[in-house]
Amino acid sequence: MSETTGRVLQLLGLLQSRRVWSGDELAARLRVTTRSVRRDIDRLRELGYPVHASTGHGGGYQLGAGAALPPLLLDPDEAVAVAVCLRVAAGGSVAGVGESALRALSKLDQVMPSRLRSQVAAVHDTTVTLAGATDTPVEPEVLMTLARASRDHEHVTVGYTDVRGNVTSRRLEPYQLVTTGRRWYLMCFDRDRDDWRSLRLDRMSDVRAVGTTFIPREAPDAASYVRRAISSSPYPYVARVRYRAPADVVARVFPAASVDVEPDGPDACIVTVGADDPQRMVPWLAMPGCEFEVLEPDEVVDAVRVVAERIARAGAGGD
């Protein structure tokens, strides 16, 4: 490979790694003059890569989207990661992606070195995807619009249907996408409600990026925020339960997306969880197999007593 060809490939890798580069930044990274950078940009354009140039504050070179997708530069770790993700996407939670993911995976497999192909095959052969795990697949356009808007700090508008069936228009500042494997959520700042929200993507409609940007706020941790929201906010009964066991032990019992677990000293923890029916919650609360105490609300405290008495009578009748 010639020095020029190697430099053009390195330039392509830089353009793929960040949204905008100035000519001076690229020249410094490639250790050439800005004139050489301009020549290499022209070579990429001749190869079909749509490289856009802009001037002024915040301007520079940017790799755009073209009518045809040129080949991507992937190092070995990236190639394996992409192949594994395509395997998961083939049976995943994004509508209509399964067949496309399989086609992309077959193309990637054809050009992969045998060493990398064996690594991917090892993951595939030892992985099983459970069918029917996804409640409502998300449209790819919705997912990509929100992903780009979150990355670029761009305002979005959406129509949203809440748990009661009410439809509202939301003006949002998107921050982070979170998936539980079954559902996708967006952690965002709702401009009209002046507060943070966790919104399900499958309940959104008419999702649009409006073109204006926002200055990012100090945001809560997305994973923790969404976990708390989906474990309690949709339910009429939200229980706080103290377990006499370490937080990491109890957390392994419950699905991560279903409860919020906080340490309460080295040998105890507080679990927050929601449910529609207090009595149906009780057997689930007993799953960790250790002593526990319901701190609140009274309805769940009473439900534990009722269910315990019912179980005791069933045990006495069995004697």
Results as ranks from 00 to 15, higher is better:
3 E>N: 14
8 V>K: 01
9 L>K: 02
23 G>F: 03
30 L>G: 04
31 R>V: 08
32 V>E: 00
35 R>G: 04
39 R>Q: 04
49 Y>N: 11
50 P>I: 07
50 P>E: 08
54 S>Q: 06
71 P>C: 05
77 D>R: 09
78 E>Q: 15
83 A>E: 14
84 V>D: 09
87 R>S: 10
87 R>I: 03
88 V>G: 01
92 G>C: 06
95 A>K: 12
98 G>M: 00
100 S>Y: 01
101 A>L: 10
105 L>M: 05
105 L>V: 03
111 V>E: 11
115 R>S: 15
123 V>A: 07
127 T>A: 05
133 A>K: 00
133 A>D: 01
133 A>M: 06
135 D>K: 00
141 E>G: 01
141 E>A: 14
142 V>C: 02
144 M>A: 13
148 R>D: 07
153 H>G: 03
154 E>S: 15
158 V>N: 02
159 G>E: 15
160 Y>W: 13
163 V>D: 14
175 Y>I: 01
175 Y>R: 07
177 L>N: 09
178 V>Q: 04
178 V>W: 14
181 G>H: 04
184 W>K: 03
185 Y>M: 03
193 R>S: 06
198 S>D: 13
199 L>H: 02
200 R>L: 13
202 D>E: 10
205 S>C: 07
211 G>T: 09
218 E>T: 10
219 A>V: 07
226 V>W: 13
237 Y>N: 02
239 A>Q: 01
240 R>I: 06
248 D>M: 02
251 A>T: 05
264 D>H: 09
264 D>S: 13
264 D>Y: 09
265 G>W: 09
266 P>W: 11
269 C>N: 06
271 V>F: 08
272 T>A: 14
278 P>E: 00
295 L>K: 07
313 R>H: 14
314 A>K: 12
315 G>W: 14
315 G>C: 13
319 D>K: 03
